[in-house]
Design a protein around this nucleic acid. Sequence first.
DNA 1: CTTGGCACTCCGGGCGAACGAGTGCCAGAA
DNA 2: TTCTGGCACTCGTTCGCCCGGAGTGCCAAG
Lengths: 340, 340
Amino acid sequence: MVDDRKLDVLRAIVEDYVATEEPVGSKALVERHGLGVSPATVRNDMAALEDEGYIHQPHTSAGRVPTDKGYRLFVDKLATLKPMSAAERRAIATLLDGAVDLDDVVQKSVRLLSQLTRQVAIVQYPSLSRSTVRHIELVSLTPTRVMLILILSTGRVEQRLVELDAPVVDSDLAELRVAVNQASVGVQIAAAAVALCDLPDGVRPEQVDSARAIVGVLTEAMSDHRSDERVAVGGTANLARYGDFDTAVRPLLEALEEHVVLLKLLGESGTDALTVRIGHEGPYSELAATSVVATGYGPQEFHLGSLGVVGPTRMDYPGSMAAVRAVARYVSRILDEGNQ
Amino acid sequence: MVDDRKLDVLRAIVEDYVATEEPVGSKALVERHGLGVSPATVRNDMAALEDEGYIHQPHTSAGRVPTDKGYRLFVDKLATLKPMSAAERRAIATLLDGAVDLDDVVQKSVRLLSQLTRQVAIVQYPSLSRSTVRHIELVSLTPTRVMLILILSTGRVEQRLVELDAPVVDSDLAELRVAVNQASVGVQIAAAAVALCDLPDGVRPEQVDSARAIVGVLTEAMSDHRSDERVAVGGTANLARYGDFDTAVRPLLEALEEHVVLLKLLGESGTDALTVRIGHEGPYSELAATSVVATGYGPQEFHLGSLGVVGPTRMDYPGSMAAVRAVARYVSRILDEGNQ
DNA sequence: CTTGGCACTCCGGGCGAACGAGTGCCAGAA
DNA sequence: TTCTGGCACTCGTTCGCCCGGAGTGCCAAG
């Protein structure tokens, strides 16, 4: 089982199959890779690999195709990350350095990732719940309407409109602004929501109602878990290269509409490690033909969110893994800089 | 040429073809619609319609298929908007009323539109250039970093980070905040950018540099035409229902990645009218097999942006047109309310 | 102007044969 | 023990072919 040549054969099969999309036979294998043995020998190895479940033949007298288990072994033992070319590194750096705000960073990352890997890319917005509050701004638009602006350490900005029953004067609003900022700046968002709850009790009686309304919306915005579900998707056009429409493209297209599904695909594991989920290893049986390469991102191992690519199980794992890791690193750096 | 029955036949052909996706023959036509004449008569009419270019037969002895010109006549003369069901109206109202901010409104509109029409939906964010400034907020994060927040009449919020060479004190910043707001609140954004340019000249000499930097970024954000290109896309999974992958799905998938292309598709015409662009009538020859149903939206005939759906030329025009118009109306109302 | 009849066209499905890629196995060589 | 060349076999794919059926255009009659 720990046979070097058999592993070589498996690697060759994976690489050829990824390149050609066609089952690969023993003869083509020895030709395209310098294996130094005859087709017959390779056939023996292939038979063994098939017994062990690493490859599979669609029907008698067709070539072999890697199974999910085969890809798994390939990824774990045989693949070395394809280093990014200098041009690619430069593209990443210049594109992301030019981003003006968080939205821009996310949009550009998705685009980048999909172009580098020629696959569908997914980037989760930095999680609300793991951010800290950087600033809260209260802007009175009319005497009875206040806009709340919540600025987070990641650069993410949430806004809410509040209708008040009674008008507030600007000086009161200013007071309240100071109070909410004191209570929450630098604090993790969950803790900030708690800290804010008691705040209205301390203000002057005339203000209490307005303060309650404002703080209410604020804490609601902070604990709105839907906002954690925001993701950006790009590169769907790459689906066009897929071979099998019904088993591969359709379910994936449907999944891409459901952001909750996407997040689960990325894996909210909370770890920053580069993870590869191959075919049936994922949580959805309809997506048994697709693999996910994902990783967390965030400054200094602090997990803010995830990003990755999804594609057919027959995909270029080394290349995708390298691209995903490279983009995650740049994004982490950018977010860190903005926060310094 | 102005023959009532021939028009009836054309309408029947369009409806049948949209329903079945198959060329429709004379016999099936008289059966499914109560035309009250024999197949032979219908055949004569069909021959005439074909001479005039409204329909086309893929090959001898196949049924007829509407041409783009045929769809055009159908849309212009024969189609009556399918009224929305009560349930659909309710769905629109409850979904959009629950939106918390502009992003939310746009996201939900896209989703709604794609579900109502079972097609790919596109919604353009309200144009920056046609909005007025509602408020500008300057928040000092550290002494040398200021975050600018630009709140527009549409509810759209733009944010930018400014690095200053020298620290500013809060009171100076407050002064500047008052000044920029005075200069720009209520003013159309292009005019506001102009008005702001001269502003730094009036401030105290120590502030000039900071003011210049801040106003510079602000006017840049205001005149950033890229921001006008923001669009949201949804319902791509509906592409899966398309018959022909290579001629229909692939080019459209590619177009959906290019937001500039999408905007051109929606038509920046600036009018609020409901427009239908059928097949080759559009600006892209690769999209000769797709149609666009779009309209502008915005309070009281004031064009803020466009929204619509794209699909195969063989699509349900009456239904799509009704849905697009209904959603546009609700979106307009919501934006108007937020702005009142 | 409409209708029924009729000959004609041509697409699509079904069937069978030839083909070829790939295999498994076996006997002999290293 | 391991590798290799040879060989018979399997089975999916492709091509040619035929045939049925849907649909048409045209014509003569109502």
